[in-house]
Amino acid sequence: MSEPIVKFQDVHKSFGDIKVLKGINLDIKPAEKVAVIGPSGSGKTTIIRMLMTLEEPTSGDIIVDSTNLWKMEKKGKMVKANEKHLRQVRGDIGMVFQHFNLFPHMTILENCMTAPIHVKKENKEEVRERAIQMLDRVGLGDKLNNYPSQLSGGQKQRVAMARALVMRPKIMLFDEVTSALDPELVGEVLEVIRDIAKHDDMAMVLVTHEMDFALDIADKVLFLDEGVIAEQGTASQVIEHSTNERLQGFLHRFRR
């Protein structure tokens, strides 16, 4: 396929004295679906948070669509990116969070309309139409004027996905989007992700503990362990043919 849309080049990240990521190298192609698995504390979430500009890498480069995300050129030198630069580059990236983070003072529909109108300066009527379409798609077309507090966790997470999709990102990041949900609500959220994965041609990165689901929809699986990508490949390569002991142990705990 074509050039990668995201490249991580020897990316390190420390929080104080704790080294979370110790040299991540990673290519994501357009439309590729990547699942990131691994024990908790292995830095899975940090990878996508750096890509969303919520966390700054300690060293290394992240390239998005051939532009360096965290560095920019100034008088012939590469310096730390300013907010303007970050905004230009991250415009193609969308993210869904573990705790939904819907805007509680806005209705569902307003949640989905604010960013396209104010950030992308799009026409309000067009945005409204698209937002309603998107909310219909995630099965919430009848809740447009409700507030987030009136929804269940699963419904909130589906709104969060619609909100990200209305921005038409080229890359969607999912940060343990089912971890905060009651077990009976997980299914409805996974269905929506499956639908997006099947019908939209954006790249997707899923940090998840839903192992079977991840393996089912992912083109590529990364096993992150102790700050490095310990194993990567297609689902069958990683699951069935890996000889990595820690990966086998990790999978075993999930399969019980």
């Binding site: 969303m52 919520l54 907010e83 905004r87 604010t114 950030v119 990200a164 921005m167």
Partner: peptide
């Protein structure tokens, strides 16, 4: 963070 993810200034 959600607002940043929607690329707000």
């Amino acid at each position: 963070e959600a607002a940043t993810a929607l690329n707000m200034s």
